[in-house]
Amino acid sequence: MFSEFLQYLFTGITIGATYALIALGFTLIYNASHVINFAQGEFLMIGGMATVSLIGLGFPLPVAMVGAILLAALMGIALQRFAIAPAKQADPVTLIIITIGAAIFIRGIAQLVWGRGYHSMPNFSGDVPVRIGGAVVNTQTFWVVGIAAVLVAGLVFFFTKTMIGKAILATSMNKVAARLVGIKTDMVLMLAFLLSAVLGSIAGIIVAPITFTSYDIGIMLGLKGFVAAALGGLGSGMGAIVGGLTLGIVEAMTAGYISSDYKDAAAFGVIILVLFFMPRGLMGARVVERV
């Protein structure tokens, strides 16, 4: 009985850690610009697909990964420069549509360049799974959870200990004031998109050995990331992590104990329920709306 529970828990944590990374990407951009970036999932896709194709060209895995992350970072900056920045005054809904347009555009190009098939990527370390208390755990799970933890620690350090990180935080709190104290807010916005793209592409690379990768993998994963971010509370880094893990575990438990037919419905039901009692998500800021 317990081994079953453990198995579902590990499954939930693996996918939950991925959701958390995607949600963190949403949070970064949301904090800096109040935009919900529906192209977030495409960073994942770029990460996975570019890595696979670079491996195919004969590069070793680490080089391919770095190449893919750089490509995604470039994409993030381009998205901010050419799509978000020119539409500064636009309504939030308009910005959503712009990012959706960008996502479709990126997907359209990826489909031309890399084709429409699914691709597999080897596990980072061996295919022999590990047994823990009767549960079977894929070695890649440790990579996913470990890298996610390292990235989170890195982000915490970045935002609390470095000048640039503090500048981003300051800009998210009050743009005008930030500008007054000499922060280049344009740079900060670009940096937020870049970081978000890097996070997304790393997430895309580390889950690719588990989920495979293809030009349209970003649609559903990106959406789940948004759900996780909203569940945890938009703009809260801790919320993104809690939201991601909760979502992953709820999905795995429902699939294991109840029925996999309504696994996704259960996740969305939880969202509605949480928002019903906590209208700003699990850890969202309890701020008063400005008039």
Binding site: I15, M220, M253, A255, G256, S260, D261, K263
Partner: peptide, 20 residues
């Protein structure tokens, strides 16, 4: 008799039921 949605990325939970 278990199912998975086409967008699922991990079917371990469903298969665990079958294995047990």
């Amino acid at each position: 008799d278990v199912t998975y949605s086409p967008s699922d990325t991990d079917m371990t939970a469903q298969l665990t039921r079958i294995r047990n």
